[in-house]
Design a binder for these strands. Structure first.
Lengths: 341, 341
DNA sequence: CTGAAAGCGCTTACAG
DNA sequence: CTGAAAGCGCTTACAG
């Protein structure tokens, strides 16, 4: 395969000049530039980014480690991250942790060995020693969505507290009193924060959150199924199940359906994270929507600021409640008719 | 950051020996190996994959260019591709073309410059010159799902012909006679093949497929919306709309709903590509399911065979019809109750 | 079993 | 504006 030397030979110039021409260095004569371009074209030359990276010590690549690609929330996040990164001249390599701590570590290690310029992470496991000392290393790092307390790294995330309070108000207004939650893993911030916000909101209404109404999930559909089955088997079934992510809501829907029950008549359902399909499920699902595109953009910008030596900015954006019909009654404000895709 | 030289110094050995120890070369004494490992640990040494790649001329990375990450079909494909690749010792870099030919080319170019060992592609645009001559280049390449006729590259894909025939039989059995299709871009194989298979199946039942019943979509939700609106505005509205992918089915659902019509009473709906949410939509959507995991695995294996000098294998796997309620009547065989996630 | 040395394909001071 | 040369961090014949 043609290298820069071949181009230089074909153009009758040194490799130094070819390199300059290719990198738009100002001091290259128009004539030289033209000959280089012609030679590149003729030989079908494609610069070797590996060699360039070794020499310049930058890969113009950022790593994105997410907990689960199959979760539409993260898929969307990844899509916007790539878009913003591309705009700023970076590629992104995605590492999918699949909610498995070992797999997360595998990807972090691999990305670090590949010398990515920066790392965007939504930690699947906040206790991973590797992750913690990667944060202490010299590879710039930013947390998105989930983060690790006590680790000094910028965080870009959504705050769902108010939206959860709105949700509880909505549920209370519909007469629901026995509210249950399917939580995410305790080792993740979003895993316990959502429970805490829920508990706090319930307290404002003088409602209890008994242990039996806190199901331990792992953000995957299966756990939503399992926890919901347990809820349904309780002597006093909850009026509402709030799933801390959309996949567990899917599982909950499966479980309710398997029992032959109906939403919301027999049991109500709400989810954290909105997805286009929630408009068309039976019934449409009330959900808390995060400003995913904005989060992705802010996260990339913070990371690139860090990479390029500017002060990065932590960002917290509010999530918002989108009322549909899965908790009862038709919403008075008609919900938008499109699925945002 | 510690390099191999530092490790060598700390271990009191040459870099050559350190390198051998790290690469599990047989001729390294147990003592040397132990000292190397200790030094690596002490210094927190992380091998530089960029340097290694430059030297060995392999990156142990494959590129995956897909048409749209937000399409659950491709998300799932990507997930399984990564899994299989990891098993075989490769990383994968995903390039999301977003159904935009220019973006597809951008990613192909970037991946080639990064010297990935092989390329897995589902072409968003079969006419891209870059793509065609990349196929002729020396980077091993395999097509998944979509391919480019006339280009000599192994293809791993699903054949939906029989499933589409089954679908038409199902529709005909329910008394539907005016069948319409939302097609994908003509520049993609899946874009026109699905239309052809549909047309052929209709012919077997003596049914026409008038031009007015062929809507031109682009595999994105918006186009499904637009085309469906056109169908609904026809003097003679179709009985059924068959969307050539799941995103266009989403758009179709939006459009039907916006018009205040009901599925399947007013108009029936079916989709190519099954997704977990189709179990819970209102109504559950009849769809054609591809064996995604198997396709992903076969594609990676074919590519790695090519990379490692073994003869690759093109593979075609059958898709299958999953009957639910969106075309009318309750299916006699109860559909599975879980959403496969 | 170990080490000295060449070289992968670039970029970039340095000199002219 | 251009070129000769060093060097990025590894791996791998080659010699011992």
């Amino acid at each position: 395969m043609a290298g820069i030397k071949d181009v230089a030979a074909a153009a009758g110039l040194s490799v130094a000049t070819v390199s300059r021409a290719l990198n738009n260095h100002p001091s290259v004569s128009p004539d030289a530039r033209a000959r280089v371009l012609a030679a590149v074209e003729a030989l079908g030359y494609r610069p070797n980014a590996v060699a360039r990276s070794l020499r310049t010590d930058q890969t113009r690549t950022i790593g994105l480690v997410i907990s689960d690609v199959l979760n539409p929330y993260f898929t969307e996040l990844a899509r916007f991250v790539e878009e913003e990164a591309r705009t700023l001249g970076y590629s992104v390599i995605i590492g999918n942790a699949n909610e498995e701590p070992d797999l997360q570590d595998h990807h972090v290690r691999t990305l670090l060995e590949r010398r990515i310029d920066g790392l965007l992470v939504s930690p699947a496991d906040g206790r991973s020693p590797l992750m913690v000392d990667a944060a202490g290393g010299r590879t710039p790092m930013v947390f998105v969505d989930r983060w690790i307390p006590g680790v000094d790294v910028p965080v870009v995330r959504a705050d769902g507290r108010q939206a959860i309070r709105d949700l509880v108000a909505h549920l209370h207004g519909l007469g629901h009193r026995r509210l249950a939650i399917i939580a995410g893993p305790a080792a993740t911030t979003t895993g316990h924060e959502r429970v805490e916000a829920f508990r706090e909101a319930l307290r404002e209404y003088g409602l209890p959150l008994p242990d039996a109404y806190i199901g331990q999930g792992d953000f995957q559909a299966d756990s939503g199924r399992r926890v919901t089955e347990e809820f349904l088997a309780l002597p006093e079934m909850p009026d509402v199940v709030f799933a801390a992510d959309n996949l567990m809501a899917l599982g909950a829907l499966d479980a309710v359906r398997a029992r032959g029950l109906r939403v919301p008549q027999d049991i109500a359902l709400a989810a954290f994270d909105d997805i286009p399909w929630f408009v068309h499920t039976d019934p449409p699902v009330t959900a808390i929507a995060q400003p995913v595109a904005d989060l992705a953009r802010a996260a990339v910008r913070a990371l690139v600021d860090l990479i390029e030596g500017r002060p990065p900015q932590s960002v917290t954006l509010p999530a918002r409640l989108v009322v549909r019909r899965s908790c009862g009654e038709t919403p008075s404000t008609p919900s938008p008719n499109r699925s945002n895709l």
